[in-house]
Every structure is written in structure tokens, then in C-alpha cells.
Computed example of a mutant assay.
Amino acid sequence: MTEYVIPPPPQASLPVSTGEGRFPVRRVFCVGRNYAAHAREMGKDPDREPPFFFMKPADAVIGAAGTIPYPSLTSSFHHEIELVVALGAGGREVAPADALALVWGYGVGVDLTRRDLQDEAKKLSRPWDWAKGFDASAPCTPIRPVAEVGHPDSGEIWLRVNGELRQHGDLKDLIWSVPEVISAISTAVDLAPGDLIYSGTPAGVGPMQPGDVVSGGVAGVAEFTFTVGSADRRPV
């Protein structure tokens, strides 16, 4: 048995809808500007600039329920709802036609963003890590297996803040489909079981304040509700 000089961190994981065990999270890949309308609202031209990838740490993943803390270092805390793809198998240079065979299931997540830090990083041509990879920045619903939900390639995706509709779109409007996203990532790294992919957000991203009630979902996959807490508090 391996001995460690300090206690190893706990395995990041999510519940599954079947109630049997938990889904272990290995890595979190995120797709930027994968809906044309969102790319345009961020001041970009989707016809000239394709989507791209960034990452979050595995332990940024928490349940999309209860209270989510308002993070430090920001006064512009934004929501970005996304279909989440959970891989049960891995591969390298996977063809799009073979990509869905890697998928264990799907969930609905929110790519939480410190927008002011991201804007500053863009101006200075610096990485986005502080803007995207902070604690509790990747809430997600329980993962539902493919046997329950199939492979959703169309359907409503939406998010509300205090009952007001902020984001609304359809999965069919993804610039890169889920198979194409999986294939593209697999050309850069070896995908592995436990990898999560946040597949991109529709237009309408915006700020949240302490006390806001945030709800959202993807038709046929899952829905969630959480409350934005005060700064520097761990999720309840």
C-alpha cells in the first residue's frame, strides 16, 4: 500500500441519478464560445474564431444545490449554464463517429466566472485560471447515465435568476457538437474515465448577487436550483 507524507486529498465526485455509488471526477474540460450568440455577446465573431478549450480543477466540481459561495476578489460574479458530458471510457484521437461510445452520462452544470478578473486577464494576455478555476466554480447536477437520457443533441437549455429568464438556447445550436468536442480534446490529450466536459453556454450570461436564487436545466437531462451565498463561505 502506498504511503503518503501528507494525507491525500479526497476524490472529487458527483452523485449519479441511479443512486448507486458516485461518479469520480478526473479532469474538467470547458469549451469557450461554443454558441454563436454567446460568442457575439462577448465581442467575438464565431465565423472567424472557432471555439476553444480551458480547464478547471477537479475539486471545483460541487453539487448544483444548496448554497454556492460568492467568491473573493470579484464584484462581477457570472453564471454560464452548460450541458455536462461525463466520460466512462478514454481514448486518443477519437473519431467523431466513435466519440459517443466514451460517454457514461450527462448532467447540467454552471461555469461560474469572476468576469472582472477574466476581462483583466484578456487585456493583459494572461491565463484565465483565477477567473475560472476557483473553489466551487463548477456546480453540477447528479450525472444521469446514457441508458436514462440517451445522447441529447437538441433541446432547451435555460437559466433563471430570481425567476427572471437570463439564458435560453437549444443544444442543436452548439457550434461544435458533443462528438466533435470529444474528438477535438482527444487530439490534444488522452481522454480517460472520469473526465467531465462543460460543453459551452448560450447567450445571456450575467451577474449574480448574494441571496440570488439561481435555477436552470436542460430538457430531458436535469434541472437544478441553488442560492448564492456570501463571500468566502464554503458550499453548504
Rank of each mutant, 00 (worst) to 15 (best):
R144I: 05
W176D: 09
H151M: 11
A147I: 13
E156V: 09
S186D: 03
I175C: 08
P142R: 07
S154K: 10
G163I: 14
I175D: 05
V161L: 05
I157W: 01
S154H: 14
V161Y: 00
R160W: 01
K172Q: 09
G163C: 13
T187A: 02
L174K: 01
K172N: 07
G150N: 11
L159M: 13
E180V: 09
R160K: 15
V146N: 06
K172Y: 00
R160I: 03
H168P: 04
N162C: 11
I143G: 08
V146C: 07
I175V: 14
L174E: 05
S177P: 12
I157N: 00
T187Y: 04
A188F: 11
S183I: 10
W158G: 00
I143V: 15
D153K: 13
V161A: 05
L159R: 05
I157D: 00
G163A: 12
P142H: 07
L159G: 11
P152H: 06
L171T: 11
E164R: 14
I185T: 12
V178H: 04
V181F: 01
P142M: 09
G150D: 11
G155E: 03
T187R: 10
I143Y: 05
G155C: 08
D173L: 09
K172P: 06
I143P: 07
E148Y: 10
S177F: 04
L171D: 08
E156G: 00
S186R: 01
P142D: 10
